[in-house]
Design a protein around this nucleic acid. Structure first.
Lengths: 218, 218
DNA sequence: AGGATCTGGTAGACAGTGTCTACCAGGCCC
DNA sequence: GGGCCTGGTAGACACTGTCTACCAGATCCT
Protein backbone atom coordinates (compact mmCIF):
# COMPACT_ATOMS: atom_id res chain seq x y z
CA UNK A 1 0.00 0.00 0.00
CA UNK A 2 2.09 2.85 1.28
CA UNK A 3 5.18 0.95 0.30
CA UNK A 4 6.56 3.69 -1.80
CA UNK A 5 6.49 6.29 0.94
CA UNK A 6 9.69 6.65 2.85
CA UNK A 7 10.19 4.58 5.94
CA UNK A 8 10.56 7.70 7.99
CA UNK A 9 7.00 8.76 7.35
CA UNK A 10 5.71 5.25 7.69
CA UNK A 11 7.24 4.91 11.13
CA UNK A 12 5.51 8.07 12.28
CA UNK A 13 2.20 6.84 10.87
CA UNK A 14 2.52 3.53 12.64
CA UNK A 15 3.50 5.36 15.81
CA UNK A 16 0.46 7.61 15.69
CA UNK A 17 -1.74 4.63 15.11
CA UNK A 18 -0.20 2.82 18.02
CA UNK A 19 -0.57 5.79 20.33
CA UNK A 20 -4.22 6.17 19.41
CA UNK A 21 -5.09 2.54 19.87
CA UNK A 22 -2.83 1.35 22.67
CA UNK A 23 -2.19 4.53 24.59
CA UNK A 24 0.85 6.70 24.86
CA UNK A 25 2.65 4.56 27.39
CA UNK A 26 3.44 1.52 25.33
CA UNK A 27 4.85 2.97 22.18
CA UNK A 28 8.02 0.98 22.08
CA UNK A 29 10.63 1.51 19.44
CA UNK A 30 10.75 -2.16 18.63
CA UNK A 31 7.01 -2.46 18.47
CA UNK A 32 6.78 0.34 15.95
CA UNK A 33 9.48 -1.26 13.86
CA UNK A 34 7.71 -4.61 14.06
CA UNK A 35 4.41 -3.18 12.87
CA UNK A 36 6.16 -1.32 10.11
CA UNK A 37 7.68 -4.59 8.95
CA UNK A 38 11.31 -3.66 9.44
CA UNK A 39 13.98 -4.82 11.81
CA UNK A 40 14.34 -3.23 15.19
CA UNK A 41 17.44 -1.36 14.19
CA UNK A 42 15.94 0.28 11.14
CA UNK A 43 14.36 3.33 12.82
CA UNK A 44 17.77 4.35 13.99
CA UNK A 45 18.62 5.42 10.46
CA UNK A 46 16.02 8.20 10.77
CA UNK A 47 15.64 8.79 14.48
CA UNK A 48 18.80 8.60 16.51
CA UNK A 49 16.90 7.76 19.65
CA UNK A 50 13.52 6.69 20.88
CA UNK A 51 12.75 10.18 22.12
CA UNK A 52 13.39 11.57 18.67
CA UNK A 53 10.76 9.28 17.18
CA UNK A 54 8.29 10.16 19.90
CA UNK A 55 8.97 13.83 19.30
CA UNK A 56 8.19 13.37 15.63
CA UNK A 57 4.95 11.67 16.56
CA UNK A 58 4.12 14.53 18.92
CA UNK A 59 4.89 17.06 16.24
CA UNK A 60 2.49 15.27 13.95
CA UNK A 61 -0.09 15.71 16.69
CA UNK A 62 0.41 19.45 16.74
CA UNK A 63 0.01 19.54 13.00
CA UNK A 64 -3.23 17.62 13.25
CA UNK A 65 -4.45 19.94 15.95
CA UNK A 66 -3.62 22.99 13.86
CA UNK A 67 -5.51 21.52 10.92
CA UNK A 68 -8.47 20.82 13.16
CA UNK A 69 -8.40 24.41 14.34
CA UNK A 70 -8.30 25.73 10.84
CA UNK A 71 -11.31 23.66 9.86
CA UNK A 72 -13.19 24.70 12.96
CA UNK A 73 -12.48 28.37 12.47
CA UNK A 74 -13.47 28.20 8.82
CA UNK A 75 -16.92 27.05 9.86
CA UNK A 76 -17.74 30.22 11.78
CA UNK A 77 -17.95 33.86 10.83
CA UNK A 78 -17.76 36.08 13.89
CA UNK A 79 -14.58 36.10 15.99
CA UNK A 80 -16.58 34.97 18.96
CA UNK A 81 -18.03 32.09 17.00
CA UNK A 82 -14.61 31.15 15.77
CA UNK A 83 -13.23 31.11 19.27
CA UNK A 84 -16.10 28.96 20.37
CA UNK A 85 -15.50 26.50 17.54
CA UNK A 86 -11.83 26.48 18.41
CA UNK A 87 -12.55 25.77 22.03
CA UNK A 88 -14.83 22.91 21.14
CA UNK A 89 -12.20 21.52 18.80
CA UNK A 90 -9.56 21.69 21.50
CA UNK A 91 -11.57 19.67 23.97
CA UNK A 92 -12.77 17.28 21.32
CA UNK A 93 -9.22 16.61 20.24
CA UNK A 94 -8.19 15.78 23.78
CA UNK A 95 -11.07 13.37 24.10
CA UNK A 96 -10.98 11.68 20.74
CA UNK A 97 -7.22 11.39 20.46
CA UNK A 98 -6.39 11.16 24.09
CA UNK A 99 -3.17 9.25 23.65
CA UNK A 100 -1.83 11.85 21.29
CA UNK A 101 -2.93 14.68 23.54
CA UNK A 102 -1.09 13.11 26.43
CA UNK A 103 2.03 12.53 24.43
CA UNK A 104 2.11 16.05 23.09
CA UNK A 105 2.64 17.63 26.48
CA UNK A 106 5.08 15.12 27.86
CA UNK A 107 8.11 17.32 27.91
CA UNK A 108 10.04 14.64 29.70
CA UNK A 109 9.85 12.49 26.61
CA UNK A 110 9.85 14.99 23.83
CA UNK A 111 12.09 17.81 23.02
CA UNK A 112 15.01 16.60 25.07
CA UNK A 113 17.74 19.00 26.01
CA UNK A 114 20.23 17.25 23.76
CA UNK A 115 18.15 17.74 20.63
CA UNK A 116 19.84 18.97 17.50
CA UNK A 117 19.11 22.62 16.94
CA UNK A 118 18.13 22.30 13.31
CA UNK A 119 14.66 21.16 14.31
CA UNK A 120 12.66 23.77 16.17
CA UNK A 121 11.89 22.64 19.65
CA UNK A 122 8.52 21.09 20.07
CA UNK A 123 7.35 23.72 22.50
CA UNK A 124 7.49 26.26 19.74
CA UNK A 125 4.95 24.35 17.74
CA UNK A 126 2.34 26.07 19.85
CA UNK A 127 3.60 29.54 19.04
CA UNK A 128 1.89 30.28 15.68
CA UNK A 129 -1.19 28.68 17.10
CA UNK A 130 -1.10 31.08 19.98
CA UNK A 131 -0.59 34.01 17.64
CA UNK A 132 -3.72 33.13 15.75
CA UNK A 133 -5.47 32.84 19.05
CA UNK A 134 -4.38 36.26 20.25
CA UNK A 135 -5.57 37.80 17.01
CA UNK A 136 -9.03 36.33 17.46
CA UNK A 137 -9.24 37.54 21.03
CA UNK A 138 -8.19 41.02 20.02
CA UNK A 139 -10.78 41.19 17.25
CA UNK A 140 -13.41 39.81 19.52
CA UNK A 141 -12.77 42.40 22.15
CA UNK A 142 -12.48 45.34 19.82
CA UNK A 143 -15.88 44.45 18.46
CA UNK A 144 -17.29 44.28 21.92
CA UNK A 145 -15.70 47.58 22.85
CA UNK A 146 -17.16 49.21 19.80
CA UNK A 147 -20.59 47.99 20.79
CA UNK A 148 -20.13 49.11 24.33
CA UNK A 149 -18.71 52.51 23.71
CA UNK A 150 -22.24 53.75 23.27
CA UNK A 151 -23.61 52.99 26.67
CA UNK A 152 -20.80 52.97 29.18
CA UNK A 153 -17.21 53.67 30.09
CA UNK A 154 -14.62 51.68 28.22
CA UNK A 155 -12.98 49.66 30.97
CA UNK A 156 -9.45 48.76 30.05
CA UNK A 157 -8.93 45.14 31.02
CA UNK A 158 -5.70 43.28 30.45
CA UNK A 159 -3.94 43.43 27.07
CA UNK A 160 -5.14 40.92 24.49
CA UNK A 161 -2.07 38.75 24.83
CA UNK A 162 -2.78 38.27 28.52
CA UNK A 163 -6.43 37.52 27.90
CA UNK A 164 -5.45 35.10 25.17
CA UNK A 165 -2.98 33.37 27.47
CA UNK A 166 -5.60 33.10 30.19
CA UNK A 167 -8.19 31.74 27.81
CA UNK A 168 -5.79 29.30 26.26
CA UNK A 169 -4.82 28.05 29.69
CA UNK A 170 -8.45 27.58 30.46
CA UNK A 171 -9.15 25.54 27.36
CA UNK A 172 -6.06 23.48 27.88
CA UNK A 173 -6.83 22.71 31.47
CA UNK A 174 -10.42 21.91 30.64
CA UNK A 175 -9.35 19.55 27.89
CA UNK A 176 -6.90 17.73 30.10
CA UNK A 177 -9.08 17.52 33.18
CA UNK A 178 -11.96 16.33 31.08
CA UNK A 179 -9.84 13.72 29.40
CA UNK A 180 -8.60 12.67 32.81
CA UNK A 181 -12.11 12.31 34.10
CA UNK A 182 -11.91 14.75 36.98
CA UNK A 183 -14.39 17.26 35.66
CA UNK A 184 -17.01 14.61 35.12
CA UNK A 185 -16.62 13.67 38.75
CA UNK A 186 -16.69 17.26 39.89
CA UNK A 187 -19.77 18.20 37.94
CA UNK A 188 -21.65 15.18 39.15
CA UNK A 189 -23.00 12.16 37.37
CA UNK A 190 -23.87 12.57 33.72
CA UNK A 191 -27.55 12.98 32.83
CA UNK A 192 -27.30 9.44 31.51
CA UNK A 193 -29.34 10.29 28.47
CA UNK A 194 -26.78 12.72 27.18
CA UNK A 195 -25.34 12.11 23.77
CA UNK A 196 -21.59 11.62 23.29
CA UNK A 197 -21.53 15.36 22.81
CA UNK A 198 -22.04 15.88 26.51
CA UNK A 199 -23.96 19.07 27.11
CA UNK A 200 -22.22 19.66 30.43
CA UNK A 201 -19.17 20.12 28.29
CA UNK A 202 -20.86 22.72 26.15
CA UNK A 203 -22.13 24.62 29.14
CA UNK A 204 -18.69 24.65 30.63
CA UNK A 205 -17.20 25.87 27.39
CA UNK A 206 -19.62 28.76 27.06
CA UNK A 207 -19.07 29.63 30.71
CA UNK A 208 -15.35 29.79 30.05
CA UNK A 209 -15.75 31.95 26.97
CA UNK A 210 -18.16 34.27 28.77
CA UNK A 211 -15.74 34.64 31.63
CA UNK A 212 -12.84 35.73 29.47
CA UNK A 213 -14.59 37.62 26.69
CA UNK A 214 -17.66 38.88 28.51
CA UNK A 215 -21.12 37.42 28.03
CA UNK A 216 -22.37 37.43 24.50
CA UNK A 217 -24.48 40.52 23.81
CA UNK A 218 -27.12 39.05 21.59
CA UNK B 1 17.96 7.13 60.32
CA UNK B 2 14.43 6.38 59.24
CA UNK B 3 15.20 2.75 59.65
CA UNK B 4 12.34 2.10 61.97
CA UNK B 5 9.72 3.36 59.56
CA UNK B 6 8.20 0.69 57.43
CA UNK B 7 9.69 -0.07 54.10
CA UNK B 8 6.47 0.77 52.40
CA UNK B 9 6.69 4.39 53.46
CA UNK B 10 10.40 4.56 52.79
CA UNK B 11 9.89 3.38 49.22
CA UNK B 12 7.40 6.15 48.61
CA UNK B 13 9.74 8.71 50.13
CA UNK B 14 12.59 7.58 47.95
CA UNK B 15 10.29 7.60 44.95
CA UNK B 16 9.16 11.16 45.60
CA UNK B 17 12.75 12.21 45.99
CA UNK B 18 13.69 10.54 42.77
CA UNK B 19 10.81 12.08 40.87
CA UNK B 20 11.73 15.52 42.13
CA UNK B 21 15.40 15.26 41.28
CA UNK B 22 15.53 13.08 38.20
CA UNK B 23 12.14 13.70 36.64
CA UNK B 24 9.09 11.57 36.39
CA UNK B 25 10.28 9.49 33.49
CA UNK B 26 13.07 7.54 35.08
CA UNK B 27 11.51 6.30 38.27
CA UNK B 28 12.36 2.67 37.85
CA UNK B 29 11.25 0.10 40.33
CA UNK B 30 14.74 -1.28 40.68
CA UNK B 31 16.24 2.14 41.09
CA UNK B 32 13.92 2.96 43.96
CA UNK B 33 14.73 -0.33 45.62
CA UNK B 34 18.43 0.31 45.14
CA UNK B 35 18.28 3.73 46.75
CA UNK B 36 16.20 2.36 49.58
CA UNK B 37 18.89 -0.20 50.21
CA UNK B 38 16.80 -3.29 49.55
CA UNK B 39 16.82 -5.91 46.87
CA UNK B 40 14.91 -5.37 43.68
CA UNK B 41 12.22 -7.84 44.66
CA UNK B 42 11.42 -6.24 47.98
CA UNK B 43 8.92 -3.61 46.79
CA UNK B 44 6.75 -6.39 45.48
CA UNK B 45 5.78 -7.24 49.05
CA UNK B 46 3.96 -3.88 49.28
CA UNK B 47 3.21 -2.93 45.71
CA UNK B 48 2.18 -5.74 43.41
CA UNK B 49 3.32 -3.84 40.36
CA UNK B 50 5.32 -0.85 39.30
CA UNK B 51 2.17 1.12 38.57
CA UNK B 52 0.96 0.56 42.09
CA UNK B 53 4.09 2.14 43.50
CA UNK B 54 3.83 5.04 41.10
CA UNK B 55 0.21 5.50 42.10
CA UNK B 56 1.23 5.66 45.74
CA UNK B 57 3.80 8.29 44.86
CA UNK B 58 1.19 10.25 42.96
CA UNK B 59 -1.22 10.00 45.86
CA UNK B 60 1.44 11.44 48.09
CA UNK B 61 1.64 14.32 45.64
CA UNK B 62 -2.05 15.03 46.02
CA UNK B 63 -1.68 14.99 49.78
CA UNK B 64 1.17 17.47 49.56
CA UNK B 65 -0.85 19.66 47.28
CA UNK B 66 -3.79 19.60 49.64
CA UNK B 67 -1.54 20.56 52.53
CA UNK B 68 -0.10 23.39 50.48
CA UNK B 69 -3.61 24.59 49.75
CA UNK B 70 -4.57 24.49 53.36
CA UNK B 71 -1.56 26.54 54.34
CA UNK B 72 -2.18 29.03 51.56
CA UNK B 73 -5.83 29.47 52.42
CA UNK B 74 -5.02 29.90 56.09
CA UNK B 75 -2.89 32.91 55.23
CA UNK B 76 -5.77 34.91 53.78
CA UNK B 77 -9.04 36.13 55.20
CA UNK B 78 -11.47 37.03 52.41
CA UNK B 79 -12.72 34.31 50.09
CA UNK B 80 -11.24 36.18 47.18
CA UNK B 81 -7.89 36.40 48.89
CA UNK B 82 -8.03 32.73 49.69
CA UNK B 83 -8.76 31.85 46.09
CA UNK B 84 -5.88 34.00 45.01
CA UNK B 85 -3.53 32.31 47.45
CA UNK B 86 -4.79 28.96 46.27
CA UNK B 87 -4.19 29.86 42.66
CA UNK B 88 -0.68 30.98 43.40
CA UNK B 89 -0.03 27.79 45.31
CA UNK B 90 -1.29 25.67 42.42
CA UNK B 91 1.06 27.25 39.92
CA UNK B 92 3.92 27.28 42.36
CA UNK B 93 3.48 23.61 43.04
CA UNK B 94 3.62 22.80 39.36
CA UNK B 95 6.80 24.80 38.98
CA UNK B 96 8.65 23.77 42.10
CA UNK B 97 7.72 20.11 42.02
CA UNK B 98 7.37 19.70 38.32
CA UNK B 99 8.13 16.01 38.25
CA UNK B 100 5.45 15.28 40.79
CA UNK B 101 2.95 17.49 39.01
CA UNK B 102 3.57 15.59 35.80
CA UNK B 103 3.27 12.25 37.44
CA UNK B 104 0.05 13.12 39.19
CA UNK B 105 -1.90 13.52 35.99
CA UNK B 106 -0.46 10.59 34.08
CA UNK B 107 -3.52 8.44 34.06
CA UNK B 108 -1.79 5.98 31.81
CA UNK B 109 0.56 5.12 34.62
CA UNK B 110 -1.55 5.57 37.68
CA UNK B 111 -4.88 4.24 38.58
CA UNK B 112 -4.87 1.38 36.13
CA UNK B 113 -8.08 -0.37 35.27
CA UNK B 114 -6.99 -3.51 37.10
CA UNK B 115 -6.53 -1.73 40.41
CA UNK B 116 -7.93 -3.32 43.53
CA UNK B 117 -11.08 -1.59 44.60
CA UNK B 118 -10.11 -1.19 48.24
CA UNK B 119 -8.03 1.84 47.40
CA UNK B 120 -10.04 4.76 46.07
CA UNK B 121 -9.06 5.57 42.56
CA UNK B 122 -6.54 8.31 42.23
CA UNK B 123 -8.85 10.54 40.27
CA UNK B 124 -11.03 10.90 43.28
CA UNK B 125 -8.23 12.43 45.25
CA UNK B 126 -9.19 15.67 43.60
CA UNK B 127 -12.77 15.48 44.70
CA UNK B 128 -12.63 16.93 48.25
CA UNK B 129 -10.23 19.49 46.93
CA UNK B 130 -12.78 20.52 44.37
CA UNK B 131 -15.48 20.69 46.98
CA UNK B 132 -13.47 23.12 49.03
CA UNK B 133 -12.91 25.07 45.88
CA UNK B 134 -16.57 25.28 45.00
CA UNK B 135 -17.35 26.49 48.50
CA UNK B 136 -14.88 29.32 48.18
CA UNK B 137 -16.24 30.34 44.81
CA UNK B 138 -19.79 30.34 46.16
CA UNK B 139 -18.85 32.49 49.12
CA UNK B 140 -16.89 34.78 46.92
CA UNK B 141 -19.77 35.31 44.59
CA UNK B 142 -22.43 35.70 47.22
CA UNK B 143 -20.33 38.47 48.76
CA UNK B 144 -20.05 40.15 45.42
CA UNK B 145 -23.74 39.81 44.78
CA UNK B 146 -24.51 41.34 48.14
CA UNK B 147 -22.32 44.29 47.30
CA UNK B 148 -23.87 44.65 43.89
CA UNK B 149 -27.48 44.31 44.82
CA UNK B 150 -27.46 47.99 45.70
CA UNK B 151 -26.63 49.44 42.34
CA UNK B 152 -27.77 47.08 39.64
CA UNK B 153 -29.66 43.99 38.57
CA UNK B 154 -28.44 40.73 39.93
CA UNK B 155 -27.33 38.92 36.81
CA UNK B 156 -27.53 35.18 37.28
CA UNK B 157 -24.37 33.69 35.84
CA UNK B 158 -23.63 29.98 35.88
CA UNK B 159 -24.07 27.97 39.09
CA UNK B 160 -21.08 27.98 41.45
CA UNK B 161 -20.08 24.45 40.58
CA UNK B 162 -19.71 25.40 36.94
CA UNK B 163 -17.75 28.53 37.77
CA UNK B 164 -15.57 26.50 40.08
CA UNK B 165 -14.96 23.91 37.39
CA UNK B 166 -14.08 26.61 34.89
CA UNK B 167 -11.73 28.33 37.32
CA UNK B 168 -10.09 25.10 38.34
CA UNK B 169 -9.54 24.21 34.70
CA UNK B 170 -7.99 27.58 34.20
CA UNK B 171 -5.57 27.22 37.09
CA UNK B 172 -4.68 23.71 36.05
CA UNK B 173 -4.01 24.64 32.46
CA UNK B 174 -2.00 27.65 33.51
CA UNK B 175 0.09 25.57 35.85
CA UNK B 176 0.81 22.97 33.24
CA UNK B 177 1.46 25.30 30.36
CA UNK B 178 3.71 27.38 32.53
CA UNK B 179 5.61 24.37 33.70
CA UNK B 180 5.90 23.26 30.11
CA UNK B 181 7.29 26.62 29.06
CA UNK B 182 4.67 27.55 26.50
CA UNK B 183 3.24 30.51 28.33
CA UNK B 184 6.63 32.07 28.77
CA UNK B 185 7.09 31.85 25.03
CA UNK B 186 3.63 33.19 24.35
CA UNK B 187 3.93 36.15 26.68
CA UNK B 188 7.29 37.10 25.28
CA UNK B 189 10.72 37.20 26.78
CA UNK B 190 10.93 37.74 30.53
CA UNK B 191 11.85 41.21 31.76
CA UNK B 192 15.21 39.70 32.60
CA UNK B 193 15.34 41.51 35.90
CA UNK B 194 12.33 39.68 37.23
CA UNK B 195 12.73 37.73 40.41
CA UNK B 196 11.99 34.00 40.50
CA UNK B 197 8.48 35.06 41.42
CA UNK B 198 7.84 36.16 37.88
CA UNK B 199 5.43 39.06 37.83
CA UNK B 200 4.02 38.02 34.47
CA UNK B 201 2.77 35.03 36.37
CA UNK B 202 1.06 37.19 38.95
CA UNK B 203 -0.58 39.36 36.35
CA UNK B 204 -1.86 36.30 34.55
CA UNK B 205 -3.23 34.91 37.79
CA UNK B 206 -5.13 38.06 38.67
CA UNK B 207 -6.42 38.26 35.11
CA UNK B 208 -7.74 34.73 35.46
CA UNK B 209 -9.39 35.41 38.79
CA UNK B 210 -10.93 38.63 37.53
CA UNK B 211 -12.32 36.83 34.53
CA UNK B 212 -14.10 34.19 36.55
CA UNK B 213 -15.06 36.11 39.67
CA UNK B 214 -15.41 39.58 38.30
CA UNK B 215 -12.85 42.32 38.88
CA UNK B 216 -12.14 43.08 42.48
CA UNK B 217 -14.31 45.96 43.67
CA UNK B 218 -11.88 47.76 45.86
C1' DA C 1 10.71 -26.72 74.58
C1' DG C 2 9.94 -27.72 69.83
C1' DG C 3 7.83 -27.91 65.50
C1' DA C 4 4.62 -25.28 62.16
C1' DT C 5 3.45 -21.06 60.16
C1' DC C 6 3.70 -16.53 58.73
C1' DT C 7 6.39 -12.05 57.62
C1' DG C 8 9.47 -9.59 55.00
C1' DG C 9 12.90 -10.00 52.42
C1' DT C 10 16.95 -12.13 48.97
C1' DA C 11 18.50 -14.01 44.61
C1' DG C 12 18.04 -15.76 40.21
C1' DA C 13 15.59 -16.53 35.87
C1' DC C 14 12.90 -14.80 31.90
C1' DA C 15 11.19 -12.03 28.31
C1' DG C 16 11.41 -7.63 26.54
C1' DT C 17 13.46 -2.93 25.96
C1' DG C 18 16.70 0.91 23.97
C1' DT C 19 21.17 1.50 22.25
C1' DC C 20 25.39 0.26 19.98
C1' DT C 21 28.31 -2.14 16.63
C1' DA C 22 29.50 -5.00 12.89
C1' DC C 23 28.03 -6.42 8.64
C1' DC C 24 26.03 -6.39 3.98
C1' DA C 25 23.13 -6.07 -0.45
C1' DG C 26 22.48 -2.83 -4.11
C1' DG C 27 22.83 1.38 -6.63
C1' DC C 28 25.97 4.98 -8.15
C1' DC C 29 29.97 7.40 -9.74
C1' DC C 30 34.63 7.92 -11.46
C1' DG D 1 35.54 -3.02 -12.17
C1' DG D 2 36.64 -1.03 -7.69
C1' DG D 3 35.37 2.27 -4.16
C1' DC D 4 31.71 4.57 -1.73
C1' DC D 5 27.44 5.86 0.07
C1' DT D 6 22.41 4.45 1.35
C1' DG D 7 19.30 1.89 3.99
C1' DG D 8 18.71 -1.80 6.23
C1' DT D 9 19.73 -6.60 9.04
C1' DA D 10 21.33 -9.21 13.04
C1' DG D 11 23.40 -9.83 17.23
C1' DA D 12 25.29 -8.26 21.61
C1' DC D 13 24.95 -5.57 25.96
C1' DA D 14 23.09 -3.63 29.93
C1' DC D 15 18.96 -2.83 31.97
C1' DT D 16 13.97 -3.19 33.10
C1' DG D 17 9.50 -5.28 35.34
C1' DT D 18 7.64 -9.56 36.71
C1' DC D 19 7.69 -14.16 38.50
C1' DT D 20 9.34 -18.01 41.33
C1' DA D 21 11.96 -20.41 44.64
C1' DC D 22 14.14 -19.98 48.79
C1' DC D 23 15.12 -18.51 53.61
C1' DA D 24 16.22 -16.17 58.24
C1' DG D 25 13.73 -14.84 62.07
C1' DA D 26 9.73 -13.92 64.82
C1' DT D 27 5.35 -15.77 66.58
C1' DC D 28 2.19 -19.03 67.93
C1' DC D 29 0.24 -23.56 69.39
C1' DT D 30 0.21 -27.60 72.05
Amino acid sequence: MTDESSLRERLIDVGVDLVLTEGSASVGLREIARRAGVSHGAPRRYFPTHHALLSAIGRRGFEDLAAMFEAAVAGATTPRGQLEALARAYVRYALERRGMFELMWRHDLLDGAAQASDQPRLRESTLPLFGHFTGLVARCRSERDAARRADGPNEAGPPPAVTAAALWSNLHGMAQLWAWGSLQLALGAPPLDSAPGDDRRDRLITAVLDAHLGPVTS
